[in-house]
């Protein structure tokens, strides 16, 4: 047994300093295309340029191309598979969780008593595995969410937040509803990843419902495919009002705007 103790000590502390300080290590986030400054000659050209994006994350507005983060799946097509790359830069940030509610309202939902003890129930509604893997990283030394008072609980009976990943498959619909029903109030729903936000690459079909918002009200969205652990952490902190969610530009009825097919 002693070897293990020694091994533990030997490897030291690797945990990120976030949220006290920013995490600067590389590879912690896939990031979003940023810096789309080009002004196109015509609106038509802009929309042609935007059409390289498979999920309609890029939108042409007049002669500009703008990005709707919740719909981006980091496919890098706007960078790597266009004649002239659309995105000149790739932003490695991760504080991008957005909410239909402003910070004050989010903070009100749970109040102060939950700020250092929030229990999560993770519900896999058809996630591809990457999203779930990123959540699991939160339990591991590099991110260790316990230090911030976030815990995964085995049953929705004790859960404050329902973390839903995946495009909401038909077969998980009833389990999701009963889990949501089983949760005590106050309860919040976190939509994890592009799939849970708008169905991701799977969209709406006979087998999936294109995101959780079609079933239950969502309180916070974490864009990304998959959202890196730090983005999830940011979302959780935002949920209890400890940090500001990213600039809110959603209309709550259809998060991520219209669905692409």
């Amino acid at each position: 047994m002693w070897e293990w103790v020694w091994e533990g000590i030997r490897s030291g502390i690797v945990t990120t300093a976030y949220p006290a300080r920013e995490e600067t290590a590389s590879g912690v986030s896939p990031g979003f295309p940023t810096d789309l400054p080009r002004t196109f000659a015509a609106a038509g050209e802009a929309s042609v340029a935007a059409s390289c994006c498979p999920t309609e994350a890029l939108l042409s507005e007049d002669q500009q191309v703008v990005l709707r983060e919740p719909r981006c799946i980091h496919c890098y097509r706007c960078l790597r598979q266009t004649e002239t790359p659309l995105a000149w830069q790739w932003q490695g940030n991760y504080e991008w969780a957005v909410s239909p509610h402003p910070r004050v309202e989010l903070a009100k939902k749970f109040g102060r008593s939950f700020r250092r003890s929030l229990h999560l129930r993770i519900l896999d509604a058809g996630a591809c595995g990457a999203c779930l893997s990123e959540i699991e990283q939160l339990n591991k030394p590099y991110y260790n969410m316990h230090r911030l008072g976030f815990f995964v609980t085995p049953t929705p009976r004790d859960a404050d937040v329902l973390v839903v990943a995946g495009p909401m498959t038909e077969h998980m619909r009833q389990p999701l509803l009963s889990a949501y029903e089983a949760m005590p109030t106050p309860k919040a729903v976190l939509a994890l990843g592009a799939c849970a936000i708008f169905g991701g690459v799977f969209g709406t079909s006979f087998a999936s419902m294109g995101g959780v918002a079609s079933l239950i009200p969502v309180d916070i969205l974490v864009p990304g495919c998959p959202p890196p652990p730090l983005a999830i952490l940011h979302a959780l902190l935002a949920l209890i009002g400890r940090v500001e969610p990213a600039a809110c530009e959603l209309n709550s009825s259809s998060p991520g705007g219209e669905r692409g097919d």
Binding site: G8, S11, G27, C225
Partner: peptide
């Protein structure tokens, strides 16, 4: 924990070199 550290290191390595931690795209 040790294996978790290694996993995250592998993910970061992938992320740094390919832009995506799970080698999408």
């Amino acid at each position: 924990s040790q294996a978790g550290i290694l996993e995250e290191e592998a993910l970061r390595l992938s992320g740094t070199l390919t832009g995506h931690r799970y080698l999408f795209g």
